[in-house]
Design a protein around this nucleic acid. Structure first.
Length: 269
DNA sequence: ATGTCGATACTTTATCGA
C-alpha cells in the first residue's frame, strides 16, 4: 500500500515525571518549549482528582488520567481530540496498580492509538516484584500482538524499566543483577520487539549512551551515569511514518527535576 | 558513602518505593 502524506506531523512524547504535583511547572515549561501534540506521563503519584487537569487544559491540552494514591499513575495529554479511553491492560483482573492507559488521538482523517506505560521496576529480584514484572511484560506482549492484528498505527510509550542493550547503560557490569538489565528481562523485551515493533530512538541513531534516567543519588547526572529505560515502540504502520526521535536531556538540569527526561518521536501522517 | 527524592502516617522522623 502506498503511503500518502496528509501534511500533518504528530509529535508524541513520554516522560516519567515522578509526582505530577511537584512537577506541574516543569511540565508546563517543557510543553511550551517542546510543543508535543501528545504527551504520555508516568508516576503521577496521585488519584485522578489530584491531577492538575485545569493547568494543562489552559495550556491547550485534553487530559486523560488513570491515577492511584501515592504510587504509580499514568496520564495522557493531547492537543488533539481523545477518544476510546481504556485503562486496562488485559490478562489480570486482580491487578490494582495504575500502570496503563490507552487512547485514540485523531488528526483529521488519521487516528493513532497511543498508550502510556509504566512497566513495573521489579526490584528486589528475589521478591514477588520480579515475577510480577515478568508477568506484566507477558501481558503487554499478548496485548501488543492483538493490536498488531488490527494493522493500525499505534505507539506504546513509557517507562519500560528495561535497559535493552549494554550500550544503554554507563556500566553494564554494575547492573548485571538488576531487574532492569537481567537476561530474562532483556529477553522478554526483545520478544516484544520481535512481534514487529520499532524502537523509535534506535531507528534514528545507533549512538551509545542515549540516556533517559539518571539517579538522584551519588551525582549520577553530573557524572553522566545514566540508563536508557524510556522508550516509544511503534507499530509497522507508525514506523513507516517516523521522521525523527530524540531525548530532551536538558530538562534534567532544571530546578526540581524528575530523575527521568522526556523522549519523543515525530510521525508524518 | 545507604550518597536523593517523593508520598504517607504521624512526626517532629520513619517507612516504603524507586
Amino acid at each position: 500500500m502506498a503511503i500518502t502524506d496528509s501534511g500533518l506531523n504528530m509529535k508524541i512524547a513520554t516522560w516519567n515525571v515522578n509526582s505530577i504535583k511537584v512537577r506541574t511547572q516543569n511540565v508546563l515549561e517543557w510543553l511550551g518549549q517542546a510543543q508535543p501534540d501528545v504527551a504520555c506521563l508516568q508516576e503521577i503519584k496521585t488519584v485522578d482528582e489530584g491531577f492538575p487537569r485545569e493547568a494543562f487544559e489552559e495550556a491547550g491540552y485534553n487530559v486523560a488520567v488513570h491515577g492511584q494514591k501515592s504510587y504509580n499513575g499514568v496520564a495522557i495529554l493531547s492537543k488533539l481530540a481523545i477518544e476510546d479511553v481504556s485503562a486496562r491492560l488485559p490478562g489480570d483482573d486482580d491487578d490494582e496498580q495504575a500502570r496503563y492507559l490507552e487512547v485514540t488521538v485523531t488528526a483529521g482523517e488519521r487516528a493513532v492509538r497511543v498508550a502510556s506505560i509504566y512497566l513495573p521496576n521489579g526490584n528486589p529480584v528475589d521478591s514477588e516484584k520480579y515475577p510480577y514484572k515478568l508477568r506484566w511484560m507477558e501481558r503487554l506482549r499478548t496485548h501488543a500482538a492483538q493490536l498488531l492484528d488490527e494493522e493500525d498505527m499505534f505507539v506504546l510509550a513509557g517507562d519500560y524499566n528495561v535497559i535493552p542493550e549494554p550500550e544503554d547503560v554507563h556500566n553494564p557490569q554494575g547492573w548485571s543483577d538488576d531487574a532492569l538489565f537481567l537476561p530474562q528481562t532483556r529477553a522478554s523485551y526483545r520478544s516484544l520487539l520481535g512481534l514487529g515493533l520499532t524502537d523509535a530512538l534506535r531507528a534514528c541513531t545507533r549512538e551509545p549512551a542515549q540516556y533517559t534516567f539518571w539517579d538522584y543519588q551519588a551525582g549520577a547526572w553530573q557524572k553522566n551515569h545514566g540508563i536508557r529505560i524510556d522508550h516509544l515502540l511503534l507499530s509497522p504502520q507508525a514506523a513507516d511514518r517516523l521522521t525523527g526521535s530524540g531525548i530532551d536531556s536538558e530538562v534534567r538540569a532544571w530546578e526540581k527535576p524528575s530523575d527521568h527526561v522526556p523522549v519523543w518521536a515525530e510521525l508524518a501522517l
